[in-house]
Design a protein around this nucleic acid. Structure first.
Length: 497
RNA sequence: GGUCUGUUCGUCUAGGGGUCUAGGACACCGCCCUUUCACGGCGGCGACACGGGUUCAAAUCCCGUACAGACUACCA
């Protein structure tokens, strides 16, 4: 049987890092086993689901390159089937009607009030003491017929336990006494999560459920539903969580955009780099390699090498340099300089386009120049954004001067204000403007002035690119060409800062 | 409160009784390379949560404790 896995986000927010990693692992597992990767949108919470979230999630998945192998399933479309399943269990006596009026949730923190209630019930109430649990069928039917509202609860057996072998966490067991008679269908007819998930997974013929560890206890409830329905549960693999620094839960409410996938796309990350980073959060191949191309990830991925302990996604919102996980940034830089140039070019093009620095000649008459330039400057870039910011001077005359660079490399050596335009004049008559010739001219000039080579070079770098850092100066001259080099050396813009 | 799960450098991790004076990566620091910065090279800092067992031997097995997380809804 071919494996079928699903990624099942609920559209109540954008695709965040933890979900993206879950999607990745599902995807890798599907590809590794030659199975199918499916997408199911769990949009049954009408209050919180939004179209905007859905689009954000779809965009994030698209960016990461995880296209579902079959049509997207929307859980809300299956509500009738979920209801039918609940009714069937009711009919078979495996579930019962609970006529207890629905308790309105307290207005304060829901989680806290639930824990509070659990504390109070401690030792006093059994999970089975619902007064309607053993109501006769006749009476139950009669009250229902009269229009009295009811929820449908699963009738969990008095004694026994649920157990399953998790691919990551091993054998999990839970005594029935720990599980309440869970509600399958709300009194307004709305099917609840655990029922919906089980029904959909059955219908979609899911063989392996790979999801966050926060569902570990839900799994027991779901197994109870599978059993009641007379279906065989799929295999389960629960993933460790991705936490915020300090070991707290990563939440969009307190951590903001840092957790959203689109943030990384917009910040100039390469999807392959981010995928690589994500893959190593909670999984490792057990070797000292760090860089894995997708094919390699697919080949090496296995559920049994997923960790049990949660990982911390490290970032520092107060730092411009460490705004997100250092390793993610490093990995992105690694991909930017190591990817085959032709694979990187489209991304650079997109970046330059969005910064209005793109010219169609770069794919035509100036193709060779463009490729050479990208290859030259990518060496020290971290994100695609750097091409339009730090690399701006290579594509436009309208670039900024870094004040510190001007101080350090220009104003500290006032002679340069006269010398650099003079150097430009030496360049002007040159027929061939390439590395060796430029070098000879610059060296002669330096000797003539009795100056230090570094002073001339650094001054030129700042005047030509606005920066104190960058590639070899001779390469910059050659890349920019004679005309621009001469023009910028003579320009006073940098000096007038 | 209860149930379950987890705990190796700041972070991601290797490790499954002896090869561990615990390996790698990122970050940080230093040196080298260099016209600058980066890359690269070399080196440094830095961890087995704690306490008891078991064993000739424990980061590795067992038990406690601490801490963390999940669940404990007519949310998903």
């Amino acid at each position: 049987m071919t494996t079928r896995v699903r990624f099942a986000p609920s559209p109540t927010g954008y695709l965040h890092i933890g979900s993206a990693r879950t999607a990745l692992f599902n995807y890798l597992y599907a590809r590794h086993t030659g199975g199918k990767f499916l997408l199911r949108v769990e949009d049954t919470d009408r209050q919180r689901s939004t179209e905007e979230s859905l689009q954000s999630i779809l965009e994030g998945l698209k960016w990461l390159g995880f296209a579902p192998d079959e049509e997207i399933v929307f859980q809300s479309n299956n509500a009738d089937k979920h209801r039918a399943a609940a009714l069937k269990l009711l009919e078979e006596g495996k579930a019962y009607r609970d006529f207890t009026p629905k308790a309105e949730p307290t207005d304060k923190n829901i989680k806290d009030s639930i824990a509070e209630k659990a504390r109070q019930n401690q030792g006093e109430k059994s999970m089975r003491d619902n007064e309607y649990r053993d109501l006769s069928k006749a009476e139950s039917d009669e009250r229902a017929a009269k229009g009295e509202p009811f929820a449908i609860r699963l009738k969990v057996a008095e004694s026994g336990k649920t157990s399953f072998e998790d691919a990551v966490y091993g054998l999990n067991e839970r005594d029935y006494s720990e599980t309440e008679d869970l509600v399958l269908l709300r009194s307004d007819g709305h099917p609840l999560y655990n029922l919906a998930v089980v029904c959909d997974d059955i219908e979609m013929e899911i063989t392996d459920v790979i999801r966050g560890q926060d569902h570990l206890t839900n799994t027991h409830k779901q197994i109870l539903i599978y059993e009641a329905l007379g279906e065989k549960p799929p295999r389960f693999a629960h993933l460790p969580l991705i936490l915020a620094p300090g070991g707290k839960k990563l939440s969009k409410r307190i951590h903001g955009e840092i957790v959203s996938m689109t943030t990384y796309r917009d910040a100039g990350f390469l999807p392959e780099a981010f995928r690589n980073f994500l893959a190593l959060l909670g999984w490792s191949a057990g070797e000292e390699q760090e860089i894995y191309k997708l094919d390699e990830l697919i080949e090496k991925f296995s559920l049994d090498r997923i960790h049990k302990s949660n990982a911390t996604f490290n970032f520092d919102p107060t730092s411009a340099k460490h705004w997100t996980d250092d390793k993610a940034i490093w990995m992105n830089a690694e991909y930017i300089r190591a990817e085959p140039l032709e694979k990187l070019l489209p991304s650079v093009k997109a970046e330059l386009k969005s910064a209005k620095l793109w010219r169609d000649e770069y794919e035509d008459d100036d193709k060779a120049w463009f490729e050479k330039t990208v290859d030259l400057i990518r060496e020290r870039f971290f994100t695609l954004k750097d091409f339009s910011t730090q690399g701006r001077a290579y594509f436009s005359e309208d670039f900024d001067f870094d004040e510190k660079a001007v101080q350090k490399n220009l104003k500290k050596f006032p002679d340069l204000q006269k010398w650099l335009p003079e150097l430009a004049e030496k360049f002007e008559p040159m027929e061939s403007f390439t590395h060796d010739e430029i070098e000879a001219v610059v060296k002669d000039f330096t000797e003539e002035k009795g100056a230090k080579l570094g002073v001339i070079m650094n001054g030129a770098r700042t005047l030509l690119t606005g920066l104190a850092v960058g590639p070899s100066m001779l390469a910059i001259f050659e890349t920019l060409g004679k005309e621009k080099s001469v023009m910028r050396l003579k320009s006073q813009i940098g000096w007038n800062l």
